[in-house]
Computed example of a mutant assay.
Amino acid sequence: MANIFAILTAIVLAVSAFLAYVNMGDSSEEGRGYRGWISKRQTEEQSLARNEKKLAELTAQRDNLIVERDKFVTANTGLQTEVDAQLDKNKTLQSDVDDKKAAAETKKESLEKMKADFVDVGDVEDVILKLQSTQRALTELKIEITGKEAKRATLQQQANQTQASIDTLRDRIGLYSQKKSSPNLRTRVRSVYRDLGFVTLAGGDNLGIIKDSTLEVVRGGETIGKLLVTAVEAGTSAADIVPDSFAEGEAVLVGDTVVAAGDDPAPAAPTPPPAAAPAPAPAEVPAAEPEAPMAP
């Protein structure tokens, strides 16, 4: 009887030792035994530290983007002020040109009257000198008007170019305010961090990707899911995967095409008004030839 109890005791001790060994587990196998759970916890703590570091970096990038946006708005306001000042100068220049034209017309009428009254003037030599002087003054005035017209055309062209730049900046600001990426956006998924729920894209601010905008993942010509942009840099960006947007069994993959959400076509760029052509140079009016004095 004692032997039976001894045998049973030995069996119980062997089973206990085996269970203790199994529960102890192996640190190389996460989640198996208490050693495996300790290893798994250490791995998760390291992952948490990396995620917290990544969050701090993304927060700093967001703050930098806000600063850049404020600078962008300030620069746009300055450009609009310059354009308004240039338009005022153009109006002043146009007024000067109109005054010069009116003065030229007045002198022309005066010259025509002098020509009509020429036969009644006694001193022919004196009249010829006055006519030549008036003709030179008229020619100089026409040259001055031509120069003013050319300068006005140049300023108008500069104003048109500035307006085109302002319109482009306004469109970009509009996309920022509406949290929409460029309608012409087309890039690809560079990397996928499925466990963390985000991807990186092969493009950023250079392709018109806007933070907090929604993007669509396209594969084989079909939209399979959506992304939400969380951070944007000059040539790259990061976006969270929107889980509910993917059908069951679908997942974003490296190399998938990414476009801006929505089917609205890209707005047409505003066409600047054509630059005013320089006024043609006025034909020179030949100086009046002095008439031969009449024989006494």
Rank of each mutant, 00 (worst) to 15 (best):
Q135D: 08
S181T: 05
I173S: 07
N160C: 03
L196N: 11
R190T: 05
L228T: 13
K226N: 10
E149S: 11
R194V: 08
L207N: 05
T134M: 14
T187Y: 05
S177L: 11
R172L: 09
A137Y: 06
L141M: 15
I145Q: 14
L215P: 03
A239K: 03
G203K: 02
T162E: 14
Q161P: 04
L228G: 08
G225Y: 05
L228F: 09
Q161V: 12
E149D: 15
A137C: 06
S213R: 01
V232M: 00
V192Y: 02
T168L: 12
N206M: 06
K151N: 15
T200V: 04
E216G: 06
L155N: 13
T162P: 00
L138I: 09
K180T: 08
R172K: 14
K226F: 05
R186W: 00
R170G: 07
T146Q: 11
R172Y: 11
G220E: 07
I166A: 12
S133D: 14
K179E: 14
I224N: 03
I241Y: 03
V218W: 04
Y176S: 07
R188D: 11
L201Q: 00
R152D: 07
K179M: 09
K211E: 10
D171E: 10
D212L: 07
Q135Y: 07
L228E: 10
G220N: 09
Q158M: 08
G147S: 15
G220I: 02
Q157S: 12
L175M: 12
L175E: 08
L207T: 04
I166M: 08
A153S: 13
E149N: 13
A239W: 06
Q178A: 15
E144T: 10
L131E: 10
A150G: 07
K148D: 15
D240G: 02
T162Y: 08
P183D: 01
Q135I: 04
R172C: 00
E140C: 06
L141A: 13
L169A: 15
R136T: 10
V189A: 07
K142M: 11
N160E: 09
V229A: 01
S165L: 12
V192T: 02
G235T: 13
N160V: 03
R136M: 10
K226C: 02
I210N: 00
G174I: 01
V232W: 00
L207V: 02
K142L: 11
L185V: 06
K226W: 00
E216A: 10
I166K: 05
K180R: 13
